[in-house]
């Protein structure tokens, strides 16, 4: 299936792009992130990273659907 992936802050700088549309067989947000770390050698795996799907915070175990927009957030640092 086809999904839209967006990268933020340190992740965007690591992959060198803001977003991409990819064809994937990943069933969950976590599987998709693993796939993306494989595609982009600069993207590190960080345990406190967060994920959102279609503008809602999501769990890494969340299942994905065709045309979902998946947002990968590096560790946050507001305040």
């Amino acid at each position: 299936m086809k999904v839209r992936v967006r990268y933020f802050a340190a992740f965007r700088e690591a992959v060198g792009m803001e977003a991409e549309t990819i064809e994937t067989s990943a069933e969950t947000a976590g599987e998709l992130f693993s796939e993306c770390t494989g595609r982009h050698t600069g993207l590190g795996n960080f345990p406190s990273s967060l994920v959102a799907v279609n503008d809602e915070m999501a769990a890494w175990e969340s299942s994905l659907n065709e045309n979902d927009e998946v947002l990968f957030f590096p560790p946050v640092a507001g305040g």
């Binding site: 802050a9 340190a10 700088e13 690591a14 993207l43 590190g44 406190s48 946050v76 640092a77």
Partner: peptide, 11 residues
């Protein structure tokens, strides 16, 4: 980026 020392692998 704060809190993100390991977010990117060295190229």
């Amino acid at each position: 980026w704060v809190n993100c020392q390991r977010c990117a692998h060295p190229a």
